[in-house]
Design a protein around this nucleic acid. Sequence first.
RNA 1: GUGAGAUUAGCUCAGUUGGUUAGAGCACUGGUUUGUGGUGCCGGGGGUCGCGGGUUCGAAUCCCGUAUCUCACCCCA
Length: 403
Amino acid sequence: MINSLRGMNDILSEDYERFTYFINTATDIAQKYGFHFIETPLLEETALFKRSVGESSDIVGKEMYQFIDKGQNDVCLRPEGTAGVVRAFIQKKLDKAGGIQRYFYHGSMFRYERPQKGRLRQFHQFGVESFGVDSVYEDATMIMMVSDILKKLGIGYRLQLNSLGDNNCMPDYRNKLVEFVQERKDNICEDCVKRLETNPIRVLDCKNSKCQELYENAPKLLQNLCSACEDDFNTLKKILEDNGIKYEIDTNLVRGLDYYSKTAFEFVSDDIGSQSAIAGGGRYDRLVEFLDGRSTPAVGFAIGIERLMELIVMPEASRDGYYIGAMDEEAVNLVVKLAHKKRKSDKVNIDYKAKNLQKHLKAADKVNAKYCAVIGSNELKDATIWVKDLENKTEETISLEDF
RNA sequence: GUGAGAUUAGCUCAGUUGGUUAGAGCACUGGUUUGUGGUGCCGGGGGUCGCGGGUUCGAAUCCCGUAUCUCACCCCA
């Protein structure tokens, strides 16, 4: 027997219902915010992710499904969605077109990791990218959108906020931090020593409690912002407060992808185990330029669908459509014909075997049909059909023409 | 990549110190006082006990390997 690969799941039945319910509600909300769907390839040139996500990140460094294709191209399955959308944005010359472009997408992402709760090798994200708006109102709008989606799905969350600064203040801050950490180099963990070289900001995010103790008095990002960044951050907080969205400031929140600047946010759930980040995003004003486009401000977020699955509160399934059955072998043909006709307007389940009434009612109940319609020898005789409303428990026998 | 625990019927799980044809509930299916469901009664099918080796007269049970799942670390959605 051949099984699916490690960390790659089939989605069917109830899971699929949940999955599509999520996609539908998220899509609906994104469209209400004025976003348009975009689909980008699952396979991209490896260089795209090396440049955007960053070679120092774990995602690119050790988690990519990367290979050389038959044309000797270095390609990989996308590990995240933003890079592809930005690539498309530039390729279609929308950066030159100016104005505002807003997109949403959903689809499979691939990371070669050890699977655990809330983490798969092929997983699904729903994401949104907005180009051409430098106002912090857009950042707030992103957060409101995630909040709307989660609320609509009945999911509780905590919102964590931080500002990563911009080209103006970040380099200075980074130097300060490096200096601070260098002085304590002998006592920090191996990973942090590495981070010092590759991406020093990430030491803040280190899970090692000894390191965290040492960094407690480290210079804080938020206290080293330039006035423009600080103003924006304060405005953002104000907008969120005005719109009734609670947040926590987390000065150590560092997004794992290199392209973020200024606003960074993460939605976390306390109900799903250790992989608690259910959505994350922020501003990435430098990325378009970095990928050879004309400098364009941008913000976005992504939601991890699998992590939400068990948290989604599904609306109650109501009875729907018809179940049609025959009690007489001779009526089966007729039943098939009726189902074909009825399916033009309603959902119809049908049984091809003649059975007694009790069996049909049970079967109709099982598929959650609203009506159970049955033809037996009596009905066959006078060209009628017996229809029972399973919800209201009423029944009637009507002519086939009226059915 | 590291660590821990699992893997027996479609699903959830029993299986006593290794000992005859491996069980239950649910699901599926058939019958039922001859046409009324979600909540009756009686019956039936379905498992090479994850896979591959080994120990033994004998292995679901003990040992080794391997795959997958789960949880955690790391990282992230």
